[in-house]
């Protein structure tokens, strides 16, 4: 009795119940009846190495019940390839499944296998974007996006504009900042921000984002990343940092990240006294939860304890 037991299509299969259990309490796993029945048919099918269209129905059923069961995904992929199934149809099914199980990573790995085999990515970037409308920071989806860019060479096919749109929607989306870095610098052999024109463009982009929301860590990290990768001195950023954190107006600091950067610039200039002043402000007023970190930075200045 059950969905499969009563189905003529499956009457040739003798379901294989699990052999776990017995006297061992840790091994005895009780399933819901429906799940257990479906699994017992999968076990039988796998034992017989059957690859056929009905395997796709069965695995679809199981994935709906429990999308985290990686064995089911693997067998489904094997079956799709073995029977030369229509992979575009598979993608359509995956589109719906991905929307119901957003945190599941097997779905993305499966998609990856299918699209790789298809050898074309039409519609994929648009699908990814529809996923970002639900969760713009989903790590699996971003990883999948990067894979698409690498696999199909999408570096200059609107990818930079895409990061711009994502950051327009949410300037604090660190995943989008990371992706922008990847698009600009990730291609093998690309000069990235080592190229003066690209560097200028990217610095301007980060600075405009900071103007929108000064207390946002990501664009500050991005700016620092640019200076580090291109071997630029931090001193170039002094005027900019002071727009948001000036030691002349210690009560009017707009960004702890600007103050942090200013402290580093002052160290570079060997102006340890002012650097200590900036770090003091961070420790006592603008970022006290990290007081031990700021105290360490002050120690590094090598000032006598009384002055610091």
């Amino acid at each position: 009795m059950g969905k499969y037991a009563d189905d003529e299509q499956w009457s040739d299969v003798v379901p294989l119940p699990t052999d776990e259990g017995g006297d061992n309490p840790l091994a005895a796993i009780a399933y819901s009846e429906e799940y257990e029945e479906t699994m017992s048919y999968l076990r039988a099918i796998m034992a017989a190495n059957e690859y056929s269209p009905r395997v796709l129905d069965l695995t679809e059923d199981l994935i709906d019940m429990n999308p985290a069961h990686y064995t089911v995904w693997l067998y489904r992929a094997q079956c799709l390839f073995a029977i030369d199934s229509d992979l575009k149809e598979e993608l359509e099914w995956l589109n719906e499944t991905a929307l119901t199980h957003q945190k599941n990573y097997q779905i993305w790995h499966h998609r990856n296998l299918i699209v790789d085999k298809l050898d074309q990515c039409e519609g994929e970037t648009a699908f990814v974007e529809s996923m970002f409308e639900r969760d713009a920071k989903n790590y699996h989806v971003w990883s999948y996006r990067q894979w698409l860019v690498r696999r199909f060479g999408l570096w200059d096919k609107g990818e930079l504009e895409f990061t711009e749109q994502m950051l327009q929607r949410d300037v604090r989306n660190n995943s989008a900042w990371n992706h922008r870095w990847f698009v600009v610098n990730g291609q093998e052999g690309a000069a990235g921000v080592g190229d003066p024109d690209i560097r200028a463009r990217e610095m301007k982009f980060a600075m405009l984002a900071i103007a929108k929301a000064p207390q946002n860590q990501s664009p500050w990290n991005y700016l620092r990343g640019i200076t580090k990768k291109s071997g630029m001195s931090l001193a170039h950023l002094k005027d900019f940092a002071e727009q948001y954190a000036s030691l002349d107006q210690p009560d009017n600091i707009h960004s702890s990240f600007a103050l942090d950067l200013l402290a580093d610039i002052l160290v570079e200039e060997k102006n340890t006294k002012q650097a200590a002043q900036a770090l003091d402000l961070l420790e006592k007023t603008y970022d006290p939860i990290r007081k031990n970190y700021w105290a360490y930075r002050k120690e590094q200045l090598g000032l006598p304890a009384a002055v610091a």
Binding site: Y139, S143, Q146, S175, N178, H179, F182, N221, G225, K228
Partner: peptide
Amino acid sequence: QNFDGGFGTEPGAESH
């Protein structure tokens, strides 16, 4: 390792 000093799941992936 990324430009922000952290590490991701693969080269290019966000620090986590």
